[in-house]
Design a protein around this nucleic acid. Structure first.
Lengths: 198, 198
DNA sequence: TAATTATTGTAACAATCAGTACAAAAATCA
DNA sequence: TGATTTTTGTACTGATTGTTACAATAATTA
């Protein structure tokens, strides 16, 4: 009972993956459907037949970034090891993303939120969902730190997670817009110190 | 010894101010020269005669935002009062900007950095300069807090300033992309708590 | 007043924009 | 094989992009 008609000769998710890089490096308004076609190798017919519109493809891209990103982030935050090590690894992972990977500009999710959330409620929804997931994961980590005594019990897990969340996104956007590695390392230090003391 | 020729019948900086709002709400790639003309009331002749190009006008806009912004931020951080009050006021000011003002989307400077720093080195330069100024101002405030004992002496002013800086920008971009006021208030709490303890 | 110099609005530019029309191609199913 | 169904590439659409050309306008200076 397979489908009739000519089968498409490309893989949906690998096209989304390529389009992701195009949107990532140029932004939504900064890249054209022509850019997307030439980067993916698809013709306009295939692209519009498969994804409907530039906006819909962007949604698929951001959703895909959320899916893979939240998995990666949870893996880092929920892996074995001390709480301090895990939070350090989380920031170190972001540092590599921002300074040593081929990935062009910071966190695609926050870029999408800043550029499109006001114009596209679905983008705002995905970004809010991702941030909420990430914050909850961070809260669990902070609770563990408080339970084991790694973190002084004077502060609540919610406050700690909120701080780490905002500091993390500030880290990402400062990295993307200033490319200042020395600053990045000071922020990593300052963030870890603020949670675990001197 | 005044200039010859027909004088322009508009004020340069007030046009920059209007263009700032247009770029702020729509982004660089998201607004057209037509948008800029209709918002400012200028014809294309005047606009190009005065500013040269869309890119040059954007540079003037971001520079102007930097000028006025750094003044406002320093005033908040260097005013009389306790260090805690000043840092709280700083975040409260950003909260009003992001949730209660007519200003459209977060901090124009960081938006400009994310959208244009990779394509326009002059934008990256302005953003880096602003961030550097702001961080130095924050460092002075933290030094004062350490000197007076408001802040526990276990941490360095540089670490504290770096943390506050990143948390501040994370605050701004999360506000702009999720419009979640409850989260914003948790971040304010978490940030202040992390500096001054429970 | 006459010469000079700058600003202004309008019209136009080629290029690019997102999206569509459609026929050829390629597969499945009967 | 022949009918059906989907994909694919190409050509095209009208609208918009950033920018320029230029003549009319309006001021100053001599």
């Amino acid at each position: 009972m397979s489908k009739r008609g000519r089968p498409r000769d490309f893989d949906y998710t690998s096209i989304v993956d390529v389009a992701m890089k195009t949107f990532w490096s140029k932004g939504y308004n900064g890249c054209s459907t022509h850019d997307l076609c030439s980067d993916t190798g698809l013709g306009k017919g295939s692209l519009y037949n498969t994804f409907g519109s530039k906006q819909d493809l962007y949604l698929a891209v951001v959703e895909h970034y959320h899916d893979t990103g939240i998995r990666e982030q949870r893996a880092l935050l929920e892996c074995p090891g001390s709480v301090k090590e895990r939070l350090q690894n989380f920031l170190a992972w972001a540092l590599v993303e921002d300074f040593e990977s081929m990935n062009p500009k910071g966190c695609l999710l926050i870029n999408a939120g800043l550029e499109r959330a006001k114009d596209d409620p679905k983008i705002e929804e995905i970004v809010s969902r991702h941030v909420e997931f990430l914050k909850q994961t961070m809260e669990k980590v902070m609770e563990e730190g408080l339970r084991t005594g790694e973190i002084s019990k004077k502060r609540s897990a919610v406050d700690l997670a909120s701080l780490f969340l905002s500091s993390y996104y500030g880290f990402r956007v400062l990295n993307a817009s200033t490319q200042n590695r020395a600053l990045a390392e000071q922020i990593m230090n300052g963030t870890i110190e603020s949670i675990f003391g001197a």
